[in-house]
Design a binder for these strands. Structure first.
Lengths: 199, 199
DNA sequence: GGAGTAAGTTAGTGAGTACTAACAAACACA
DNA sequence: TGTGTTTGTTAGTACTCACTAACTTACTCC
């Protein structure tokens, strides 16, 4: 890892943790094991460090292709794949997302950048539901509403696990929660195929 | 509003918006229309202002009683009431929750405080589902899992609408999303009573 | 060995920030 | 009228922070 990389890695971690003002150039340099002078030789000022760090550590995913190649038109398996993809993306971008929540208004275009994936996912989910409906595999429904609820559920889980410290609210594993959430939507979208019986 | 109140109101808003370090005592005093000196006559230091502001603006709710009196054992109506209660609480505590996300590690006990309501709600939801099951109104299920998913869904919606600025992802109203989310869980928990048909 | 490049060291500047001291003004109430 | 209380004002302290200048050291490649 070269000097630029070292600095940016420490910067993105520390700013996500302590906020932009809370992470000082001195601390960043120290933790990156370079002198503060070196830091300013590589970047003209602190703001540019943040921008470069976001640039370096925001991973963009082309979900359209990802979807096209992996959907198998089995609601349970597809939704699971989508939820897992969602969490993979969000976790990779965890630091940038945290920074967007706390400093979004200070960094030009950051909110838009961070909203891109969810918006894409929403559109793809709607199209997926429409195609599933055409194939007679799920019921008629307001698919935008359902897509948003699926996303909100995933988002809530992600935020809760990633940013809220302290005693946890549940001991359930992330995997179990994700599988459970998929099951909820299966039952919602294919209500007559469930095996449960009211006793 | 007396001087204490004015200061605390401005402080909680500004710290939630800019972070603890980003909100300076000078700015707080200015916006509260008092001199900085007055601010320090009312509170010994900045940290104590934050603590007092959290104390003043964190609203605690006794959900147990609220539930006991308002449940009518109609899944749709009860879940809607619970979701609305959840959003009312979260919105009232919006500033404190934001501060908990960004400065949780700096304020003793803040995370625990903020996790209390969700934990209570989870327990009450589980008990509610168990009772509904006893009454033969919903299917057997992993109720902790279902309760958590319901909460995550509500949480995701809340965070998204409260803290994520920029172009919105959907134009659906909050009310519609909440109603939709309740419908998802109705179909999940009473799968044979739905009226939809797969075409 | 010499030249070029990246890094460290030291010392510093100017601005901002939390917080204080001292005194003056305004007001309430007896 | 006099006294206590609250607030404003002004000036200042000690510290931290982003950022710079100038010089030195280490490494590489020829």
């Amino acid at each position: 890892m070269n000097t630029d990389e070292k600095i940016l890695k420490v910067a993105i971690d520390m700013i996500a943790k302590k906020g932009y003002k809370g992470a000082t150039t001195k601390q960043i340099a120290e933790k990156a094991a370079v002198s503060e002078m070196t830091l300013f030789r590589h970047f003209p000022n602190k703001k540019k460090i943040l921008e470069a760090a976001i640039d370096r550590y925001y991973y963009s995913f082309q979900m359209k292709e990802l979807f096209d190649h992996n959907l198998i038109w089995d609601l349970g398996k597809d939704l699971l794949m989508i939820a897992e993809t969602y969490h993979t993306i969000m976790k990779k971008n965890k630091n940038v997302i945290k920074i967007a929540i706390q400093e979004g208004h200070n960094v030009q275009g950051l909110n838009e950048q961070v909203n891109k994936h969810p918006r894409q996912l929403k559109e793809l989910l709607i199209k997926y539901f429409e195609e599933m409906n055409k194939r007679g595999l799920i019921i008629d429904d307001d698919y935008e509403l359902t897509a948003m609820n699926f996303l909100y559920m995933s988002y809530g889980l992600f935020i809760s696990r990633s940013f809220v410290q302290g005693q946890t609210i549940t001991t359930l594993s992330e995997d179990d929660v994700i599988k459970g959430s998929v099951q909820v939507f299966i039952n919602h979208l294919t209500p007559n195929q469930v095996s449960h019986e009211i006793h």
